[in-house]
Simulated scan of single mutants.
Amino acid sequence: MSTSAKTFPIWAFFSLITNGLLMLGVILLIWQQQRLSAVSPTPVSETKAVKPELGERHTLNYQQWVDILKKEAQVAVDKHPEHLTILAGDSLSLWFPPELLPEGRNWLNQGISGETSYGLLKRLELFDRTQPEVILVMVGINDVIQGVSDEIILDNQRQIMSYLRKAHPKAQIIIQSILPHGGEEATWEGREKLLAIPNSRIRQLNQQLQAIATKEGVKYLDLYPLFINQQGNLHRKLTTDGLHLSPQGYIVWRTALQIYTSTKLKSEV
């Protein structure tokens, strides 16, 4: 018994404290954020500097997406905005409403709909020269949907962390947990694929992801507990179809980012 207590990882202890405080903060602030968003969303001026309108991007193929993101990254290189923060990932990052992104930062959205961990890994070089202050990564749910094994997903994630840490030594790199899906309540067109994936698997993947992040020396933000209902599925009020997020879901995410970046990151400056 005493031996186990002595070998309990220090990082795990502090992670529990951090995530506990994060969940408490989100609970306290979520209603305030919902009211502000519902009454009069305030545009984020910083966002406009580096993130243009999405327009008809949903009709683009993958290479067209990559070409556009490369150009947008170049704009960030040329303008070198202060407090540049990059969102890297799939459609969950891509469709983050600009007006809900935390204020006080310039945002560069490098999300692509349907992106996988392998796809993201292969295009990280697009923003090599942007000199971001923070890089937020969320990817993995499309891998699971496509039947990619846990081993491959985690290896790709490990390579993503290693690459970003070397390419951006001065940036705060934050790996975000994979979010749950809506289970039986899902209405997404690929519902059957979601039902074949137990959320318990995603939870286990996140546990391994956190361990890898610690080993690679990058931050880990556990959003998973903030999005689940009593059954352990994605809460219906936080999603549009059991996979993608509703405005309320993005408010939860925004609040978590606000608390994390204003406490966890600033305390380490």
Results as ranks from 00 to 15, higher is better:
Trp95His: 09
Gly147Arg: 00
Glu115Ala: 13
Ile152Ser: 05
Leu22Tyr: 11
Leu108Ala: 07
Leu209Arg: 08
Leu136Trp: 06
Thr42Gln: 13
Leu87Ser: 04
Ile197Gly: 04
Ile135Val: 15
Trp31Arg: 13
Pro81Ile: 02
Ala88Met: 09
Tyr118Thr: 03
Pro97Gly: 09
Arg158Glu: 13
Ser4Glu: 10
Met138Thr: 08
Lys166Gln: 13
His83Phe: 04
Glu56Gln: 07
Leu209Tyr: 05
Lys48Leu: 12
Thr18Arg: 15
Gln32Phe: 15
Met1Val: 09
Thr47Trp: 07
Pro132Arg: 11
Leu136Arg: 07
Leu28Arg: 12
Pro132His: 11
Lys79Ser: 02
Ile160Val: 15
Ser162Arg: 14
Arg254Tyr: 06
Ser4Leu: 06
Asp241Lys: 07
Pro247Leu: 12
Ile153Ala: 04
Ile27Lys: 14
Glu103Val: 14
Val269Tyr: 03
Lys122Arg: 14
Ile112Val: 14
Gly111Tyr: 14
Leu108His: 06
Lys6Cys: 02
Glu115Phe: 07
Trp65Phe: 09
Ser37His: 11
Pro41Arg: 08
Thr116Tyr: 08
Leu195Tyr: 03
Ile173His: 00
Ile141Gln: 10
Asn19Asp: 11
Gln131Trp: 02
Gly140Gln: 07
Ala88Ser: 14
Lys71Ile: 02
Lys170His: 10
Gln146Asp: 10
Leu94Tyr: 14
Ser40Gly: 11
Gly232Met: 12
Leu226Pro: 00
Lys215Ser: 08
Leu226Phe: 03
Gly111Cys: 14
Leu245Val: 03
Leu108Cys: 07
Thr116Glu: 06
Gly20Ile: 09
Asp90His: 14
Lys70Pro: 00
Leu223Tyr: 01
Pro41Cys: 06
Leu24Pro: 01
Trp31Leu: 11
Trp95Gly: 01
Leu21Met: 12
Asp67Thr: 13
Arg254Trp: 05
Lys122Ile: 03
Val144His: 01
Ser162Ala: 13
Gly25Trp: 12
His80Ser: 15
Thr3Lys: 13
Gln157Phe: 02
Ser40Thr: 02
Gln207Tyr: 05
Ser200Asp: 08
Glu72Thr: 12
Lys266Tyr: 04
Ala171Arg: 06
Glu216Tyr: 01
Asn61Ile: 05
Val75Cys: 06
Asp143Ala: 06
